[in-house]
Simulated assay, not measured.
Amino acid sequence: MSTDYQQAREALGRRLRELRLSAVGGRLTGTQLAQRLGWPHSKVYKLEGGRQTATPEDLRAWADGVGQAEAVEELLARLRGFESHIRSWRRQLAAGHRPVQDTWNVAVDQARTIHAWEEAVIPGMLQTADYARHIFLRYADLYGTARDTEEAVRSRMERQTWLYQGGRRFHALLWEPALHALVCPPSVLAAQLDRLAGHVGMDTIELGVIPLTASLKVPTANGFWVLDNSLVIAEDWHAELWLDDTETVASYRRVWDRLAESAVYGADAQNVINRARRGLHPR
């Protein structure tokens, strides 16, 4: 969990405690408030200690329970403020993959420079439509979400127009296993690798590949994107993190720079890609 997110959750907890101690009719103990709300007493202490994320319903119940209904809007605003940093897949994908892709399109369109790191898949900005289609299907199966696959693919393909606009620069880093991962049929991966090799040398793209044999300065952990050195978007299995505090962004850029030291570029990157391509047996 991000530091800024946790700090905000703890700050909300402190505010909830203030409201409990200044309850209309006299201060309440945590146990008294829990009894009034029909909650286990541990929930009160977890919320106040920043160890559990409150829901909007929790905040409304709390405000009512301490007799301070006028505090609801303030509490909800606090929740919206820090929840915007961590976007659960359950909530994001409730309406399918297309809305998520559209949100990405807005953020990318505003950026001039992007630094991306992917250790397991080809970056979305460089994917073929067929490869993207299989990625969306895999995640739809995993999360049981709506299958708006074609709409999501179109949105992702629209984002790639960014690569053909002057004044933009996409710095992409890949770990070699991403070139071999059969998240799609071999024939689809073969076409994807052909496309990827064709991107090497474009004036808006700097493509680096870290070979399996490379010495690593840092471990190859989860993928992330840095937009204009002001916003980081990182994915985990439970959520997508949008992080914009200066210290966190700087940390991710340091990681990207360390990884870049292990990458090969130009003809050497093409050789790694072509080697993976030759190892495929499309069917």
Rank of each mutant, 00 (worst) to 15 (best):
A172W: 06
I210M: 00
A197I: 01
L173I: 12
W175H: 10
G198D: 02
H171R: 15
A190S: 14
T204E: 01
R154G: 00
V153K: 07
K217T: 13
T161C: 07
I205M: 01
G167S: 05
E206K: 12
R147Y: 13
E158P: 13
M157T: 01
Q160F: 07
T161F: 13
E150N: 09
T204L: 05
A181L: 04
S187V: 08
P186I: 02
Q165C: 04
A181V: 10
A197E: 01
R156A: 04
Q165H: 14
N222V: 13
L212M: 09
V153E: 04
L216D: 00
P219N: 00
W162V: 00
A178H: 03
Q160A: 01
L216I: 01
S215T: 11
D148L: 09
Y164F: 14
L212T: 11
M202R: 15
S155P: 12
D203S: 14
A214V: 05
I205D: 00
Q160R: 06
G223M: 03
D148N: 09
R147A: 05
H199Y: 11
L196W: 07
Q192A: 06
R147I: 02
P186R: 02
A152L: 01
M157Y: 09
A197V: 00
R169T: 14
G223S: 11
Q192C: 10
Q192K: 08
G167W: 09
L182K: 14
G208N: 11
I210R: 15
L193S: 05
L163Y: 04
P177T: 04
Y164V: 08
R154L: 09
A197N: 04
E151R: 14
E206H: 14
L207V: 03
L207H: 08
Q165A: 15
P186W: 02
S155R: 08
D194M: 03
D194A: 07
T220S: 07
R159N: 01
A191V: 12
P177H: 00
